[in-house]
Design a protein around this nucleic acid. Structure first.
Length: 277
DNA sequence: CTCCAGGAAA
DNA sequence: TTTCCCGGAG
């Protein structure tokens, strides 16, 4: 319970922690403290909605239960298993990160995790917090938005002192952001921190970019790259109906990014660096 | 058609 | 600081 002299910030955080404890979504990666499982979920969730990840995460952990197991897997199988989740480079970096872990063991803290490929400030903090119990703020887009709306300091200042509360806070901030204090739809009437929030009832929704002036997704390199990787992962030839010059540019970029490699019979999914002769 | 638990390179 | 990376769900 918050003491009467507690600051508004502490009371708001307390209220959100209590709200989270009274009932949060039962997401599979919240049931584990295994750093590998946490890492897989966090990388999958980067710029990808929860609803799309749950089933894929469970299947992934079933197929590759440990970092060592994923590290030993063929890069092509890893890529093929990723197709559909978006941003395929994440699969390559996840594989590389697990190869490093298999070789050197897990880093001791967030600073060490941060040096692994594909692991930035947020993912490093999330793994350190959820798996290691380190008292570190996992500042994702939700934490940034909630802190800004609350007007009670920057996201790092909201982190509770007690390590066990800090871990819960990192979960709670994301849960609140996903279900109540959403980017384009803030349900202030359901928010446990409404009475301390600087923008309660008058949340400013940033204007969205003009839709008309934006190029069709099918005209972007991302689309072509995605089609190529999906086709090769399925054992098919390069997709047709795409201008050769555009196709070649995408293949070149995919090779540069480590997703493809060239062979005598054309490009294919890349084997990991270790597996190449 | 918009949305979304980032990271890396330029 | 910007730009690029991807795609299914709602």
């Amino acid at each position: 319970m918050p003491s009467p002299s507690a600051s508004a910030r502490e009371q708001a955080v307390d209220a959100i922690l209590g709200w989270y404890g009274r009932g949060a979504r039962d997401l599979p990666w919240r049931r584990t403290r295994d750093p590998y499982a946490i890492l897989v979920s966090e990388v999958m969730l980067q710029q990808t909605q929860v609803s799309r990840v749950v089933e894929r995460y469970l299947r992934w952990i079933e197929r590759w239960p440990t970092a060592g197991g994923l590290a030993a897997a063929d890069r092509r199988d890893v890529l093929a298993a990723w197709v559909g989740l978006g941003y395929n480079s994440r699969a390559v970096r996840l594989h590389e990160a697990c190869i490093a872990v298999a070789r050197h063991g897990w880093p001791a803290d967030a600073a060490g995790l941060r040096r692994l490929p594909g692991i930035g400030p947020y993912t490093a903090a999330a793994v350190a917090s959820f798996a290691f119990g380190e008292r570190v703020a996992a500042v994702d887009t939700n934490a940034v938005r909630i802190a800004a709306r609350l007007g009670l300091g920057d996201p790092h200042e909201l982190l509770p002192e007690a390590p066990e509360h800090a871990v819960t806070w990192n979960q709670a901030a994301m849960e609140l952001g996903a279900t109540v204090c959403r980017a384009r739809d803030a349900a202030c009437h359901r928010c446990p921190a409404e009475r301390w929030c600087a923008s309660a009832g008058r949340v400013v929704i940033p204007p969205r970019a003009a839709a008309g002036s934006r190029v069709r997704f099918e005209d972007t390199d991302r689309y072509v790259r995605g089609r190529i990787v999906a086709a090769l992962a399925a054992g098919d030839e390069l997709p047709d109906g795409i201008a050769p010059e555009r196709l070649e540019r995408a293949v070149e970029a995919l090779c540069r990014d480590g997703l493809l490699e060239r062979t005598g019979s054309g490009p294919r999914l890349a084997a990991a660096a270790d597996e190449r002769a």
